[in-house]
């Protein structure tokens, strides 16, 4: 059962978005988020929605996966929408329910906020998390942040920690499974009783897991020393990330999108947030 846990949200594929340089994707996703926040009125929101849909189509990730990703947000989405509909004070009264008044602006605002949240989530995950493997992501982050080394930010060390964590997650999951089975075989009851009882039942699983994780960490440290590991200084990399012309298209497209949003905001009429 524990094996079903997937690492991150990466959805393997070979689309245009998958092949983009991770550094560009990180920057592009930040720009995209800025663009979403820049949206002010119905038309710019319409535009950003179309742009997001285009990204989803480009990534060739099935709709099912995307919708599954939005599902955890459903509660927040409904909550903010209801809240905005009932408590936003505007000029055009739509309905008076005695306790609360519903305004046209409130409905619009609620709608646009919902679109903004969904766009934020879907767009950034399509640009970044769905289409970039965790390794590429770490690699991209390390290289993108490497100028920070000059001010003594341990960029390489963070990236190494991420890599090792990613490497050992499946190993530790397997181990947890084994320990759980071993404790079950000894008669420990993991799935009944109240919250406190269940939490207590986890102790005999967590303690061996921690002990073994520390042992592994010690072994790994010695093995890394044997392989001449000495931090990021003087280290080279086998895979070099090179920026090709095509890697810039992504960035420019998102930049253009942001520009378009600003222009639409300025020149289109109607309700604005």
């Amino acid at each position: 059962m524990l094996k079903d846990i997937t690492l991150g949200q990466y959805f393997p594929g070979n689309s245009f978005l998958h092949r983009q340089d991770p550094r560009m994707k990180i920057i592009a996703s930040i720009l995209y988020i800025v663009a979403v926040f820049l949206c002010k009125n119905l038309f710019s929101f319409l535009f950003i929605t179309l742009f997001t849909v285009a990204l989803v189509l480009l990534s060739r990730i099935p709709m099912k996966v995307i919708l599954k990703g939005v599902k955890p947000l459903l509660f927040i989405l409904i909550f903010t929408t209801v809240y905005n509909v009932f408590f936003y004070q505007g000029e055009h009264l739509l309905a008076d329910l005695k306790i609360v008044k519903i305004y046209f602006e409130g409905v619009m605002f609620a709608l646009l906020m919902a679109v903004r949240i969904v766009c934020l989530l879907v767009g950034s995950s399509v640009i970044l998390t769905y289409t970039t493997s965790p390794i590429m992501l770490t690699d991209g982050l390390e290289r993108l942040l490497s100028p920070l080394r000059k001010i003594h930010v341990p960029v390489h060390e963070f990236a190494m920690m991420m890599t090792i964590a990613l490497r050992f997650i499946p190993t530790l999951i397997e181990e947890t499974d084994k320990i759980m089975n071993a404790q079950k075989a000894r008669g420990s009851d993991l799935s009944s009783g109240g919250l406190i009882r269940r939490a207590k039942a986890l102790i005999p699983i967590l303690i061996p897991l921690f002990v073994s994780a520390f042992r592994r960490a010690n072994d790994l440290a010695v093995a890394m020393e044997c392989r001449c590991y000495r931090g990021g200084n003087g280290r080279t990399r086998m895979t070099q990330l090179r920026l090709h012309a095509i890697d810039w298209t992504m960035l420019f497209t998102v930049l253009l999108c942001g520009g378009a949003v600003v222009i639409i905001n300025l020149y289109s009429p109607g309700f604005s947030v």
Partner: peptide, 19 residues
């Protein structure tokens, strides 16, 4: 299990020379 560092085989083999 406790001596492989990277998440991909060839990346792991490259670890030593990279260092």
């Amino acid at each position: 299990d406790n001596q492989l560092v990277a998440t991909i085989v060839e990346e792991d083999v490259a670890f030593g020379p990279e260092n």
